[in-house]
Amino acid sequence: KELVLALYDYQEKSPREVTMKKGDILTLLNSTNKDWWKVEVNGRQGAVPAAYVKKL
């Protein structure tokens, strides 16, 4: 499985998103959308802005 690093804090704004903190390591589930990537963090799945994460 592919991992990404959170470059910034992000507070979810809808139920389809997830909150992450700078430095979090997230499991990347889907990166086909260039703006929003689906990730899993702390057992929750949701979208985060692609510009806020970097593939490891």
Score class of each variant (00 low, 15 high):
A6I: 03
D24S: 07
G23N: 06
V41R: 13
N42P: 04
V18C: 09
P49F: 05
K22R: 12
G43H: 06
Q11L: 13
R16W: 15
E2I: 15
R16E: 14
K13Q: 14
T19V: 04
T27Q: 10
N30I: 08
L56W: 09
V39N: 00
K21L: 08
A6N: 00
A51P: 08
V18Q: 03
I25R: 05
L26F: 08
G46W: 07
E2P: 12
S31M: 12
G46P: 01
L28A: 02
L7K: 05
V4W: 08
M20R: 00
E2C: 15
R44P: 01
E17Y: 07
D9A: 07
P49Q: 02
P15W: 11
K38W: 15
L56D: 00
K38Y: 15
Q45R: 12
K1E: 10
V41F: 15
D35K: 13
I25V: 11
D24N: 07
N33K: 08
N30M: 08
G23H: 04
A51T: 11
W36R: 03
N42D: 12
L5R: 09
V41W: 09
S31P: 07
K54A: 12
I25D: 00
V53E: 01
G46A: 06
S14E: 07
I25T: 06
D24K: 03
T19K: 04
R16H: 14
K21I: 08
Y52G: 05
T32G: 11
N33C: 11
T32I: 11
W37N: 01
L7H: 02
K1Q: 12
A6T: 03
D35I: 14
L7M: 10
L26K: 01
A6W: 03
I25Y: 06
Q11H: 13
L29F: 05
V53H: 02
E40F: 07
S14M: 06
K13T: 13
K1R: 14
K21G: 04
K21S: 09
R44I: 08
I25G: 01
E40P: 00
E17S: 07
W37H: 02
A47F: 15
V39G: 00
V48K: 01
L29Y: 05
W36L: 04
T32W: 10
W36P: 00
A47M: 15
K54E: 12
K13D: 06
M20I: 14
V4C: 14
